[in-house]
Amino acid sequence: MLKLTARQEQILNLIREAIENTGFPPTRAEIASELGFRSANAAEEHLQALARKGAIEISPGTSRGIRLLDMSGNGNNGSVRFGGHQMSLPHPSIMQLSLPLIGRVAAGSPILANEHVEANYRVDPSLFSAKPDYLLKVRGLSMRDIGILDGDLLAVKKSDTAKNGQIVVARLGDEVTVKRYKKTGSLIELLPENPDFEPIRVDSGDESFALEGLAVGLLRSWH
């Protein structure tokens, strides 16, 4: 990989931090705002330069279509450099996770109840920002503008707490929903990423509300 400029390193760190904190990369507008650029176009130019240098991969057509790539560029076929030493990795089949796919969730029952499991998938753990516990089939288009679409498989790490800005899976009475989390005092807002949908507001003491987990990645079938 070609050497990065100081600004490119800064943007790469910003992308990495966003993925670690929220499970998703930032939008061009968020990068521009964070770094004081006048427009999202300036951020796009830096992202294209990072892609040309092999630091990231850009998926066209989505505002958050940015994926970090292996920075070593050594094509090591099953080994990784760590602390200056080369270590052998286990066979990929050993490293794979087996994750249950959760379909429709029955009212009042745990999200990981056996009757909700439609299938089990073996997946590469390196696809995710943190180790997930299950995959949830996304229904609807309320998160369309950050690239989470109907039928996608959202990788979820079980958690009953979240930070502002994270994408969460929440239970509201009989429904399970995917939204962006925001808490101000005792008010919790579950924010859509599609202007056709309204935010959901609940009190943190509402017994019908519960956090089920944090989004840590996304899988999509192209057929």
Rank of each mutant, 00 (worst) to 15 (best):
G103W: 09
E175Q: 14
K3F: 13
F82N: 04
S79F: 08
Q86Y: 12
V123T: 11
F37C: 06
F24P: 01
I148Y: 00
L218E: 04
S208E: 12
D145S: 01
E118I: 03
G151N: 06
F128T: 03
K183H: 08
E57A: 14
P192A: 04
R201C: 06
G108Q: 09
N21H: 15
R28H: 09
G151D: 02
P195Q: 10
R180E: 15
P192Q: 05
N13I: 03
L187C: 09
L211T: 10
L112W: 04
L69D: 02
Q8T: 09
L149P: 00
V202G: 02
I167L: 11
P125Y: 11
D152M: 06
R81W: 14
I200T: 13
I19W: 08
K179P: 01
P132M: 07
Y181V: 00
L99S: 02
L211P: 03
A49L: 07
L218K: 12
L4G: 06
A51D: 08
L69A: 06
E20S: 14
A6D: 15
S186L: 08
N13K: 15
G185H: 14
N76P: 01
S221V: 00
L218P: 02
L141M: 09
P25F: 09
S33G: 09
M143D: 01
T22I: 04
A130Y: 13
D145K: 06
S59E: 14
L211D: 13
R16K: 13
Q86P: 00
R104Y: 10
G185Q: 11
E9W: 11
A170L: 02
I188M: 14
S126K: 11
R16L: 05
T161P: 05
G73N: 11
H223T: 04
A107W: 11
E193M: 08
P125D: 06
Q48L: 15
S208G: 05
E198Q: 15
S33Y: 07
S39T: 15
Y121S: 03
V168Y: 14
A210W: 04
I58D: 03
L12R: 04
D150R: 12
R104F: 08
I102L: 04
V178S: 11
S109H: 13
E45K: 15
R122V: 00
L50P: 04
G61T: 03
D133R: 08
A162H: 13
E17D: 15
G83K: 14
S109G: 02
A40S: 12
H46M: 05
H116L: 03
F197I: 04
L68D: 01
F197A: 06
I31D: 05
A18S: 15
L12S: 03
L2P: 08
G108D: 06
Q8F: 13
D206G: 03
G75V: 01
E198T: 12
N120Y: 14
D174Q: 15
K53E: 09
A162W: 15
A210V: 00
K183T: 02
S142P: 01
Q8N: 11
A29M: 12
G165F: 12
I111R: 07
H85G: 01
R144F: 09
G36H: 08
A6G: 05
F128M: 02
P195R: 14
E44W: 15
T27V: 07
E34V: 02
A162V: 05
G75H: 10
Q48P: 00
S159T: 07
